[in-house]
Design a protein around this nucleic acid. Structure first.
Lengths: 231, 231
DNA sequence: CTAACTTAGTTGGATATTTACACTAAGCCT
DNA sequence: AGGCTTAGTGTAAATATCCAACTAAGTTAG
């Protein structure tokens, strides 16, 4: 195909985010209430237009939107997928580039209540969030959950939801929450040792009314490490 | 963020394809030579604009482009990722939604030479295709290869590159080609039996000057089946 | 001061799975 | 009939998993 510029169709494009964190109730996703039509008043994934002058690339746009909504600057961020169709927005052909962000418990604690406007953490139940969402956001959220759940099996992903320093027991507990099943303690610790994405924080110990626990941190707090086999 | 329509930035958007098939030299990718600026004369991944009137969604657009370039209607097709930045196209902000397509050897054989214009199969060497590509297509191709290589480990992906009917030995050989290492025969066959995405073609045998081999086909020629563990 | 309690972290053994490799099977060719 | 080649199976050693007990190190109660 020859590409004359006047063939170019320029669709409406947004960057939308599925932002996850851990709450007492388990995994939660950040949703916003739409102020404008279409779907005015409905819950939706936070998102925004690309700013042609500010955003150097799509990931920068995602980071900017994330910062606007949550104040967080350095989350784990990963592109999920792009949807585009004639019908997903009643105004016509549109596309949405969807990112997944994981917020550490530290980030969430810091910004307690300081979140932009109508944003709210919604816990994920057995069958997703119990709300109908604007556009195709319900399907997008489902995809995001699928991606997260599958990556838990063989990556350091759950580590990004914890505070910067955490114990192995805490980490195992997050894996168990996300997987929905118990894991064997000794097998889990062996895997973590082999996988080599944790480093002990020298001298740091979690102290309580019992034996103190060594604290660890992710070697690279930005990226995902994989291991060979399934948990 | 409130979303007034006049905030909407509409980037130039294309759908680009990394189309793979098996050639005697191993895995090959289909490249086209660009006729127009920018990057006129350079090799690039085949792609095209979204046709607002024809294409119901992004995947439909990808299928249309694929058919235009290769004549193939029912390949394995999967969205890879979307790139977008201010600099990837010298004309300004643009985005590209990239799909991976796998063509069966049957499809390639049928359309021998009948491919659109300046399209050519290029074998993938140790370090990708030995060409510099237009836009960020070199990076996109690299991502596509990474995705394919990682999926070989735990999915039926290689089956989509073979003719509709094939033997287990042929299938193992494709896995080995894509992985770049030898696999154990009995372990491979056990995995395939457990994975349950193959079905024997009754009565069909590959005959040569040796013991005949049972032929198999993919149970679902459109989609990808996964198995639990690594090969 | 010591014993009970709680969670951290390790060890061991029964059982299942993987792996490496050898063996048997079934055709064609000479 | 015997040799050759590739298909397909069997098996024993190594490895991983599962389950549970055990030791370690602190706090708290008496």
């Amino acid at each position: 195909m020859t590409s004359h510029d006047n063939d170019a169709f320029k669709p409406i494009a947004t960057v939308d985010l599925a932002i996850f964190s851990l709450s007492p109730a388990g995994l939660s996703v950040l949703l916003v209430r739409r102020a404008n039509a279409p779907f005015s008043g409905d819950w939706a994934l936070p998102g925004g237009w690309i700013h042609i002058d500010e955003d150097a690339d799509l990931e920068a746009a995602a980071r900017r939107v994330l910062k606007e909504k949550t104040g967080v600057e350095t989350p784990y961020l990963e592109q999920l997928q792009t949807t585009g169709s004639r019908t997903r927005d009643p105004r016509g052909w549109s596309i949405s580039i969807v990112y997944i962000a994981l917020l550490s418990a530290d980030d969430v604690a810091e910004r307690q209540g300081g979140m932009a406007g109508e944003a709210e953490w919604r816990p994920i139940g057995g069958e997703g969030v119990g709300l109908s969402l604007a556009f195709d956001h319900a399907a997008l959220l489902k995809e995001a959950l699928g991606r997260i759940r599958s990556k838990v099996e063989y990556s350091s992903l759950p580590g990004h939801l914890l505070p910067v320093h955490f114990t192995l027991s805490e980490l195992q507990s997050v894996y168990e929450t996300l997987l929905g099943r118990k894991l064997d303690k000794s097998a889990f610790r062996k895997r973590m040792a082999e996988a080599d994405f944790l480093e002990p924080v020298e001298g740091e110990m979690r102290r309580a009314s019992n034996r103190p626990a060594q604290m660890f941190r992710l070697k690279d707090a930005q990226s995902l490490a994989l291991f060979d086999r399934t948990l």
